[in-house]
Nucleic acid binder design. Sequence first.
DNA 1: ACAACTATGCAATAGTATTGCATAGATCTG
DNA 2: CAGATCTATGCAATACTATTGCATAGTTGT
Lengths: 150, 150
Amino acid sequence: MDGIDRKLLGLLQEDASRTNADMAEEVGLAPSSCLRRIRRFKSTGIIDRIVAILNPAKAGKGTKAIVTVELERHGEQHARRFLDLVIKEPAVMQAYSVSGETDVVLMVRVADMEEFDALCLRLFQDGSNVARYYTMFVIRTAKEATAIPL
Amino acid sequence: MDGIDRKLLGLLQEDASRTNADMAEEVGLAPSSCLRRIRRFKSTGIIDRIVAILNPAKAGKGTKAIVTVELERHGEQHARRFLDLVIKEPAVMQAYSVSGETDVVLMVRVADMEEFDALCLRLFQDGSNVARYYTMFVIRTAKEATAIPL
DNA sequence: ACAACTATGCAATAGTATTGCATAGATCTG
DNA sequence: CAGATCTATGCAATACTATTGCATAGTTGT
């Protein structure tokens, strides 16, 4: 993992649709050498996957909410049961167990309030082990990057 | 935007490194027709970009934190000034103005606590208009998708 | 019912990734 | 320190893939 590797990963995190020859020139390598490094990234798992990032508004999912959840019963078993429930929902894009006041944080993408309401009914119904939940609706997205700093 | 479009966008959100011919067969189109649809996604902006998603741990940024921020002085001018400050930090991957108890939510990726500490010193110093901030460290990532449900 | 527009498939072409091979550099070993 | 081993590199040939022109079929609007 040298400077060229970091530069390449940076380029790929910004735009993975560029041609290999193009990126090779930018980092100062021959196309074949460049390609072999990129392939190594994939085989070692540093690059997890190559994906298309959609524009949320144009994809009809313009509403984003951050939901913090306080569980009723804590402990491994109960926590896992709730998480297993939420990760099945496509609208729940991220789900984290966290330290602090609450136990779980969910990042949710929906079309509108109606869809959000329906989701909450499914996730926070009686028996889903949720004591309370707090919703923060995203008013403005100042930054939404996928690139990890290197 | 028909069923084939949604199927294609789904495939591209999962794996954008597949060959066009491959995906064309899966959705039941000729390669040329499939390619034209994908190109249209890009030109209309439904597809924002194609990127490499890195494995955070293997990229040396294994620590993630969700930071909620309460501003000292509210209002457009002051809020924007703080956001302009935070979006410059590569470690701040997402930054949102939100409704609710706090004003801003940051999603932060760092290597370790030392790096997090240094970041906080830069972001929450005197004069940055922050009244309080609350940090939730991610203990377990149950789900971290980039795909928007269609 | 006709015209205009759009999407499709085929086949030829252009562009790009991929591989084998010889070489240079780095690292290890006795 | 010399020799051996391993790894990365560049070049050039090859294989693969995207891309385009064109004729056709389907759809929409008047």
